[in-house]
Design a protein around this nucleic acid. Sequence first.
DNA 1: TCAAATCTTTACTTTTTTTTCAAGATTGGT
DNA 2: ACCAATCTTGAAAAAAAAGTAAAGATTTGA
Lengths: 161, 161
Amino acid sequence: MKISAQEEYGLRCLLQLACLPGTASLTLPQIAEREGISVANAGKLMWLLNKAGFVQATRGTKGGYSLARPAEHIRLSEVIKVLDEDEIGNHCESYTGVLEKCIHKGDCGIRPVIVGLHEIVQEALSQITLSQLVGDEAQVDATFHQIKRFERKLGQESLRN
Amino acid sequence: MKISAQEEYGLRCLLQLACLPGTASLTLPQIAEREGISVANAGKLMWLLNKAGFVQATRGTKGGYSLARPAEHIRLSEVIKVLDEDEIGNHCESYTGVLEKCIHKGDCGIRPVIVGLHEIVQEALSQITLSQLVGDEAQVDATFHQIKRFERKLGQESLRN
DNA sequence: TCAAATCTTTACTTTTTTTTCAAGATTGGT
DNA sequence: ACCAATCTTGAAAAAAAAGTAAAGATTTGA
C-alpha cells in the first residue's frame, strides 16, 4: 500500500506550478530540473495533468504550463485519481465489475478492507487542496493528526465493548 | 495508492487458515487451489508469513500450515507491514533516512501527505483483526464507515472556518 | 516565410514486481 | 531403510511499471 511513482511525481510537478505567484507558468525543462527528473518524464506527467484539465499548456516560444484553475480549488483526491488510473484492488475483479473472473465472488473476506481503505484514503485526500500544500503545511499535518487520533479513540472504544 | 499483489494474496492465504475450525491446517496445494493461484506462488507467500511468525509450518506427510497464534490476536497492520516490506514513499529519500539523495530535502510540500496517508492507513488496519474478517464482516464495514464519516465532518468544519 | 522554442504522441528500453521452476531438506509411514 | 508427501530456497522467466527517445505539431518573433 504505497503511492506510485506516477502519483508522487505528478503531484510534485503540479505543486511546482502552484508555488508560482499568480498565474505564472513553467516550461518542461524548468519543471524537470526543479524535480530532478528527465524532461521526457516530466513531459509525460504534464501531459496526463493537461488531459485531465488540471493544467493549461501553451505551445511555442513563451509557452509552458500553468494551473488551469486556482490551487484552492484543486483537491488532492482528484489529482491522485487521475494519476492512479483509479483502480482499486489488484486481482479480485469483484470490485471492478467483472464478477465472473474472480474466484472469491460474493463471499470475499478482504473485500471490505480493500474498498474501505480506498475510501478513507480518498476522503482524507479530498480534505486537502493544492494551496494547503504550498503554504499551509501545518494545516495538512493537523488534518492527518486529527484523523489518526480519531482512529485511535475508535480502537480504544471497541476494546471496552 | 493501491494494495500490492503480494499484500493482497498474502492476506488472502492467511485468511484461509483463519477460516478453519480450531487449529486445523492446510497444505500448500490446498491453499493454492482455494485462492486460484499456483502452488509455487502460494509457497512463497506462506514462506514470508512463516518467517514473520504468523503461521506455523510442518513438513512431511500430514504436514501443512496453521496459524501460529489465535486469529483474534493478528492485526491486519502487522500482516501488511510484513508483506509490504514497510516502505513508504517512492523516490524521496527524505522519509527513509538517506536525506542527501533527495532533491527536496527539508522543504518538501508533499512529504506530510505521504507520511500522513501511511499513518492513517496503518492505524485503520491496526483496528482490524483476522478474526473480524472471517466472521464479523459487518464490524469491519462499521469501522471504516465511522472513519469516513469523521473525515467528512472534519471537512465540513474546516469549510466553516 | 523561416527558425527556434515549445508541447504532443507513439514506440522503445530499462527497471521493478510478480510468478514460475527446479533442486533441496524434513517428516511420517511402511 | 526407503518412499512419498510436504515445506524451503534461490534462480529464472514473465509481466507490469517506469522512464527514454524520437519524430510531429504549434506558436512566436524576426
